[in-house]
Design a protein around this nucleic acid. Structure first.
Lengths: 243, 243
DNA sequence: GTGTTTTAAATGTCAGACTTTTAAATGTCT
DNA sequence: AGACATTTAAAAGTCTGACATTTAAAACAC
């Protein structure tokens, strides 16, 4: 672990990079204890606040965790799927909202990715996954639901579908795509009529999952994509017209 | 922006969370300047090092950037696709390596996701994308290539395929999946024979892309997945046998 | 007006002290 | 000897105050 004395970058960033490299390369394995702050101070010849800033950078990426007390210190953290989820959702959400990604582009990506799970989910989905999907469809049919609650239920429905593939790597990757869409979806106001159409399509998808028909599930997702795109188009057009 | 005086969590983590919320919720928009460190010290009633640790946490997630000098300070950063890429690749790579995700699971996820791009890429790929794919195939055919170089070329090939879909959101999501697989792929030693098989399959995929046949491209990916899974199985079996 | 110098504001870094948490070592009693 | 209480030391968490460096704007000189 070395830092470049010539570099113009912040010392804390350099130190964080050095430690990160050591973790990625495997020099520091999971649950290994990093040198104490005092030792890092000696090693890198910097002050303690600088070392601490570096450690906080790594903690923000869930690369390390810290413990106080006698046998405490900083330890290499085993990144959990859950840690990775939440980080990815934060990043994806901001990426979409800050870069003016069109609804069309995001929607296309989302459904393309979801179709990637179609056959796996049809084959492997448990009774639980199916029950969740049915329950969310039922919720979506209830009148008086706010647009936000409708969208949240929509996310839960699709989450169950994705989890049905029983591949944690897929679930992890998809979580970002599906959840990051939510703020965009929230921009849409759902009329009773459009909700009805979506519920019908969801029902078709759930039926396909129940019958374990991957092709039908995939087709159902494509129909839903088309419906969603058209709905968005009309909502945005109406909004532009009012201006 | 408030923090909970009851919370047991680190002050710097609480402050980082508070600011992060302000960014996600839109209270702080892109390029907005955060209060100076001195102002944050007053606001949160903590010391400057604590504030700085919080800011470093946010900087590690590319949520803010800092500038020194008279008109400097911390500014809300527009997360670029590139920032998001590199973060996701780091996270995905560690997630796979630290959680003992089986080669089978990772491979399944990777090809499922890639097939999600098949039709889009067949329809939209530019001459450039196709040329890149052909060039990488050519490189892969050269004898004397190390396993690492072969894998790197493999990644480049698939990257071109994914980018062919011309959907930045898809490219971003897939970057993690494909690149994170590389360390796992590097565990495999490729015999001349298995390389030949892969090159043949890659050629089939490139041909499908050239002919703009989405179904053929998707089928080609499935064949490649099967080949890769079998190759891995035999490599791991041979290794287990030697023990 | 243009170019130079000064100045002030902001982050970056340092040194040192104190606080809190935690586990292990030590001591004490039964 | 064993169980319990106490002390101690190590480590992260926090604070104070200072100095260094960078940068743009203000002041100044020509």
């Amino acid at each position: 672990m070395k830092i470049d004395p010539e570099s113009a970058a912040d010392l804390s960033a350099q130190i964080a990079d050095a430690i990160r490299e050591a973790i990625i390369s495997g020099d520091l394995i999971v649950d290994a204890r990093l040198p104490s702050e005092a030792e890092l101070v000696d090693h890198f010849k910097v002050s303690r606040p600088t070392v601490r800033e570096a450690l906080k950078r790594l903690a923000a990426q869930s690369l390390i965790r810290t413990q106080r007390g006698a046998t405490g210190g900083a330890f290499v953290n085993r990144i959990s799927f859950e840690d990775a989820y939440s980080q990815q959702i934060t990043t994806s959400t901001l990426l979409l909202s800050m870069n003016a990604v069109s609804f069309e582009t995001a929607c296309e990506a989302r459904f393309a990715l979801e179709r990637a799970c179609a056959h796996l989910s049809a084959n492997r989905r448990s009774a639980d996954h199916l029950a969740t999907m049915r329950a969310e469809i039922h919720r979506q049919s209830q009148p008086g639901l706010t647009d936000e609650a409708f969208c949240a239920s929509d996310v839960a429905f699709h989450r169950a579908l994705v989890d049905g593939a029983s591949n944690p790597v897929l679930s992890y990757q998809l979580a970002g795509a599906v959840e990051a869409m939510q703020p965009l979806m929230n921009m849409i106001t759902f009329t009773a009529r459009s909700r009805e159409a979506i519920v019908t399509l969801h029902t078709g998808i759930a039926n396909a999952a129940e019958a374990r028909k991957g092709d039908a599930l995939s087709a159902g997702l494509s129909s839903l994509e088309k419906e969603t795109q058209e709905l968005a188009k009309s909502v945005f057009a109406a909004r532009a017209g009012r201006r």
